[in-house]
Design a binder for these strands. Sequence first.
DNA 1: TTGAAAGCGCTAACAA
DNA 2: TTGTTAGCGCTTTCAA
Lengths: 383, 383
Amino acid sequence: MGAVSASTAGLLTRKRAAPWEGRLQSRGPPGYDPVKTTGCAPVNKPPSRPLTLRDVSEASGVSEMTVSRVLRNRGDVSEATRQKVLQAAKRMGYVPNKIAGALASQRVNLVAVIIPSMSNMVFPEVMTGISRVLETSPLQPVVGITDYQPEKEEKVLYEMLSWRPSGIIIAGLEHSDASRAMLQASGIPVVEIMDTDGEPIDSAVGISHRRAGREMAKAIMRAGYRNIGFLGTRLGLDHRARKRFEGFTQALARNGLEIADSEFYTKGSALGKGRELTQAILARRPDLDCLYYSNDIVGAGGLLWAMEQGYDIPGHLGLAGFNDVELLKGLPRRLATMDSCRDEIGRRAAEIILERVENAEAPSHGKVELTPKIDFGDTLRMN
Amino acid sequence: MGAVSASTAGLLTRKRAAPWEGRLQSRGPPGYDPVKTTGCAPVNKPPSRPLTLRDVSEASGVSEMTVSRVLRNRGDVSEATRQKVLQAAKRMGYVPNKIAGALASQRVNLVAVIIPSMSNMVFPEVMTGISRVLETSPLQPVVGITDYQPEKEEKVLYEMLSWRPSGIIIAGLEHSDASRAMLQASGIPVVEIMDTDGEPIDSAVGISHRRAGREMAKAIMRAGYRNIGFLGTRLGLDHRARKRFEGFTQALARNGLEIADSEFYTKGSALGKGRELTQAILARRPDLDCLYYSNDIVGAGGLLWAMEQGYDIPGHLGLAGFNDVELLKGLPRRLATMDSCRDEIGRRAAEIILERVENAEAPSHGKVELTPKIDFGDTLRMN
DNA sequence: TTGAAAGCGCTAACAA
DNA sequence: TTGTTAGCGCTTTCAA
């Protein structure tokens, strides 16, 4: 997702400042009629130069400053003047220049959101949570993608910081030294999301993936499974998947067990890979009685394949994934999984940014660790 | 997806201007060491005020102007001065202020990309195509989401235009009058994507969804199916789905057929809905011999359900979707579908923007209509 | 090769 | 309630 949605405070509705009085602002298009108005589009001279406040000022016979005030509904302006300005702006199709506004006010109502990928549905869902909260404010999210690469994270971060956003939400706690330095030096609120296994730079909201791995291991062992395989993306790029794996093996180890076998993949359709890898691992180790997948999509592939093969699930073969993706709701059986609290992570992160932007003195929240719950679905014995 | 990736031209590598000489610029972080450098993070005084060019100028004893030149590698600067400036900038952790730069140069290297949603995997895939092309240039995509709502499109568009981007890529050909007016008045290149059934404002890249619907109808009829049902999202919000439906029914009509029954949904897990709706429609009309879905995900749900029920596919029941999503590759059978050319649409759109940004005189490309191909998969008879 | 001056379009702060 | 005056941090332009 990306820069999203203006909020609704209305120039045209005369709504005066919201909670953001004096610190933040927002408004809808003054220069254009509401949706579906037919006819009366703005004057149609192909403009060589974009319109400025001065143009509106001249056209309306009101000083630039007052025009500016009307357009932001700040300060007291007489209703008459107000209308004059609004009409002129609307007629001309004036769109304010935020570049200039931001430079003058030293205030940029953007929140940089830096995430590894958009193809992994987890991140769009986090974005949804973020957007929902920011929509109630004048802040807008702007997204940068890192493709799980620290070098790219560095570049994207640098690029975003050069726009002087009001806050940063960034996935993960692992960053290059340079990235950490930039974040530290930025002087704006930073919320690291998705993970709490590590030291946040400022605040962090997420779950402990080590713990998630441990909990799932415990549930699996409690259900009596003993020969356990692990399937997933190649670890290393994805710190959170790696931490789940670590937590998982650690919990097994505490009970004197270890992973019997594992399969990893790097690219390709996750669902398709789930099939292939499951087939491969079970061909090699037909004695396996439980498979833990690094995410629900590979898990779903495995489930489909295993069902076709007629495996007794969860009786002789248990299956578990991670993420609680929406997609699972349409599978023939509900795959056991663990909610990764994506929506709440997004919302909490955005709330922290909002709070810090409104009150620069507000203290860091430190780590906010959410607790994911196991959903046994139909693919794991329950005890 | 969102603002993505800087390109790689290197301050530190002395690479002089690329094809963008004089019009565009880009560079990597000067103030920070490359990834994983340990130690020597920038000086760590919590900065009350972000650093400016003047700070670097003072620290290096070089005029602001020359510092600016070095940092953008523009104009001739002696190697000695160059090094002095670079070192100072790096040591201090200076990050240039693009707000100021953009205001002064009247140039903003951003391309606004306005799409309905991120949850529909179609759009992230288009974004990937766009990013891949823009990465070779100094332009960066910035995304706005409309949730399929014209009012929101208007707001997002207004918001984005107020940042004075260099170009706009926007999904669809249907916009409110106000939005059209803004696009027209913006004076920047506009590429409407995904659809070619209609009149573009400037350029358009996409496929004809009416034609896509017709082609699928013809293929279905050619294969001998006669009692055809339609399942999908409620039409109206999604113009492209509606156009496919129209094309589909139109082609049937030409052969004296019409849709025997249909089911629509608005929200919920698409896969889950695919199951439910398929069950519902076949319960009501057991005589149906083919189902056309408005997208592959609902189609996949239907396929899974129908297979469980033991339907003879494609013998007694044909199934077809639309979009060619990656996900299908892991299903027990390959659902018949049609590629929507998402990657190419993204790439072509970005290329058009690039061309127009480099050469303001370049003519509009008008409509670029791509041709999707039917993939019969395993769920449609081929004759 | 370097520097000085003049804005870019807007808003903060103050004056009227 | 309205207007005036200075910038915001950078780049353009022109002069040295």
